[in-house]
């Protein structure tokens, strides 16, 4: 039982964060609160992808004993690279892109929020809908 929990609890952690973000996006009426919920949701997804890259007992994906020259690696074939020693670098790269795109999304969303505030003078969703329906 303990073994089962230890090998799966990390996925449940990200699921809990995702539920918090989802609830904030749907139930909160303030637009900035909705954007905060979106931020939490996105970092939960990044958390999930990073946790697929973990290998037990592995270090950061920076190669040791590398001299920085291409010929060394070919000539000394003896010091072959042990793949199980390093974490999986591919999800790290994809999530690096995702973080930058997340901040770009945040910037555009905040610009739209500022425009809505200039037009209607409030950030609460129900008041905005009332003003829109009134014409």
């Amino acid at each position: 039982m303990f073994e089962f929990i230890v090998s799966y609890y990390n996925y449940w952690m990200y699921i809990g964060l995702m539920m918090i973000g989802f609830y904030a996006m749907m139930a909160k009426r303030n637009l900035v609160k909705k954007i905060i919920g979106m931020n939490i949701f996105q970092s939960a997804i990044i958390f999930f992808y990073i946790s697929t890259s973990v290998k037990k007992g592995a270090t950061v994906p920076i190669l040791e004993n590398a001299h920085g020259h291409a010929t060394h690696g070919i000539e000394h074939g003896a010091n072959a690279i042990n793949v199980m020693q390093y974490a999986n670098p591919l999800p790290h790269v994809l999530m690096l892109t995702a973080i930058v795109v997340m901040v770009a999304t945040l910037g555009v969303a905040l610009a739209v929020v500022i425009l809505i505030y200039r037009r209607y003078g409030t950030l609460e969703e129900d008041e905005i809908m009332k003003l829109v329906r009134r014409g």
Binding site: S53, V54, V60, A87, H92, L96, I99, V100
Partner: peptide, 9 residues
């Protein structure tokens, strides 16, 4: 979790 590049980004 050994993802230092993601961490400092």
């Amino acid at each position: 979790m050994a993802a230092i590049d993601v961490a400092f980004t």
